[in-house]
Computed example of a mutant assay.
Amino acid sequence: MLVAASLLAGCGFTLRGAPALPDDLDYVLIVSARQHAPLKRALVNQLDIYGLEGGTRTNVAPVERQLVISLAPEQLERRLLSVYSSGQVAEYELIYGVNYTVTFPGFDPVSSYFEVLRDYQDDPDQVLAKSRELDLVLSEMREEAADRIIRRLSTQAARLGTGQ
């Protein structure tokens, strides 16, 4: 047990907690091309969960003390995985593409892209239930995307060498 702990400590492993953002940042501003983008709402909720001050209000903090996350419109694709013997689609792979830009004060914007994937089984006999299930799956994918964006902030800050 002691050997495993020392090996993990030696390689730089640390437990994930709240992202470490530079101390000189007061606010995380979230900007989106669409006013009521679902990913923007999910991101605001995740900021609250992580205990970070942020949202969509401008003029809350001086420009030199705020981090800006600019969200591009979300992308959702379906890839066919399997079909029933009747030719109807049985299973899809949902691909939720997230493209965003982070701007730390005094640095050039950093653009990032990633995908969140889920398998989704379709049943033509359960159209209403499957429609509701699809909405729930998409909501979970947005929450995962928002969580991933926030967790990446500390890594991006470290790469830029901002004042941590």
Rank of each mutant, 00 (worst) to 15 (best):
V98Q: 02
E53H: 13
R16S: 13
V89N: 06
Q164W: 11
Q156H: 09
S139P: 01
D123R: 02
L71A: 01
Q156D: 10
R151A: 11
Q75R: 14
Y50R: 08
R57S: 13
A61W: 06
L71H: 05
L8D: 08
R142P: 00
E143A: 12
I149A: 03
E143P: 05
L67N: 03
Q164I: 10
K40R: 13
L67Y: 02
T14E: 15
D123Y: 00
M141W: 05
R34E: 15
S82W: 08
Q121L: 09
R79P: 00
R57G: 09
E64C: 06
F104E: 04
R57N: 12
I150Q: 01
D26Q: 15
D108T: 13
G106Y: 05
D26S: 14
N45A: 14
M141G: 07
A146C: 04
E115W: 08
V3T: 13
T155H: 12
I149D: 01
D135W: 01
A18W: 07
L52W: 01
A37Y: 02
K40E: 12
L153F: 07
K130V: 01
G51K: 00
R34H: 13
G97N: 02
D122C: 00
A9D: 07
V63M: 12
S154G: 11
A4K: 11
D24R: 14
E74R: 10
A129C: 00
L29W: 04
S32D: 07
L94C: 06
V98F: 07
I69P: 04
Q35F: 11
P22W: 07
A42I: 02
Q164Y: 12
A145Q: 06
A158R: 14
L153S: 03
V116S: 07
G55S: 04
A146N: 07
H36L: 13
A90R: 12
L160W: 04
Y27I: 06
A20S: 14
L15P: 12
D135I: 04
N99V: 11
V102E: 04
R78G: 08
V28H: 04
Q121C: 00
S70I: 01
D48G: 11
A20E: 14
I30L: 13
I150P: 01
A18T: 13
S82E: 02
C11K: 11
R152S: 15
E64Q: 15
Y96C: 05
S85K: 08
A9N: 10
E143F: 09
D119A: 12
S111C: 07
R79L: 12
F107N: 12
A157G: 09
G12C: 05
S85L: 08
G12L: 01
R78A: 11
R34L: 13
A42N: 10
Y100S: 08
L52H: 11
V83W: 02
I30H: 03
A129Y: 03
Y27M: 10
F13N: 07
A37P: 00
V127Q: 10
G51T: 02
M1A: 13
R41E: 15
G106M: 06
S111D: 09
L81A: 08
R148C: 03
T101R: 14
E53Y: 10
Y100E: 06
I69D: 05
L47N: 05
L21Q: 06
P22F: 03
K130R: 09
